[in-house]
Design a protein around this nucleic acid. Structure first.
Lengths: 126, 126
DNA sequence: CGGTATCCGCTTGGATACTG
DNA sequence: CAGTATCCAAGCGGATACCG
């Protein structure tokens, strides 16, 4: 991603715009809270409070903030059930599901290399 | 990842420890600078300054900080050539290469859905 | 229950300067 | 060139309170 240089023609300007957009999207999505939320939503639709319990350590504020961002980018769909008390559910869209696939890869990677990493840390720290 | 509850037996304590380690690793790695660095190093070995140019927007400080962290976790290998001026090169280890595969997936995803996302954003903002 | 708003501490991260 | 250290401002993010 990125790394290219454009020299000024109209088509290049378009490419540059797409590039900066890609960077923006990448920056939105590539943070631990967003990735963890997507990972948990991949298993099934969840309510706000369920999500709050699943993603442990996340604050009320960070959860809403990230959910809005994911909704804005069309990765998550928000459905409000007009009941009392309110019931709000979050589901992955197709785009979200697709991204989830790659996050699964990251999780699998973590478990696969956890031993290597733990050892490497000890060597480095000592 | 995570989301499980352990009830207190010795084996459970081990699982809980592995779990929190996994979380720690995930938090280290799941940030945009780390992911971008790994992505660029996947193409080829790079010097500090090359990396600084490739990952545009990153500051000197953030680059060193993330490189140390990646080295500590054994994802990146650092080789110092004792010349004047010094020449320091960074390469992905096998673990790093493996992770790079999944990051490639994220980049591909970005480009595939960039249209959807752009449109979704307009709808949301307007 | 879920969301928004406010306050505010404190971490993050940029700028700068200095070493080998 | 690469790395470390210091300083300091901006903004992240937690806590709290209040509304629909």
């Amino acid at each position: 991603m990125g790394g290219k240089r454009y020299s000024g023609s109209p088509e290049d300007a378009d490419l540059a715009r797409a590039d900066s957009l890609a960077r923006e999207i990448f920056s939105d999505v590539a943070n631990k809270w967003a990735l963890l939320i997507i990972e948990f939503l991949g298993e099934r639709t969840l309510r706000f409070s369920e999500l709050r319990n699943a993603v442990e350590g996340i604050s009320h504020k960070m959860l809403t903030q990230n959910l809005r961002m994911l909704e804005r980018n069309g990765l998550v769909e928000r459905t409000v059930h007009p009941t009392v008390p309110p019931r709000v559910e979050y589901t992955l869209t197709e785009a979200g599901q697709a991204l989830r696939g790659t996050i699964d890869g990251m999780c699998a990677w973590t478990h696969q290399y956890i031993g290597h990493i733990d050892e490497s840390r000890r060597r480095f720290d000592g």
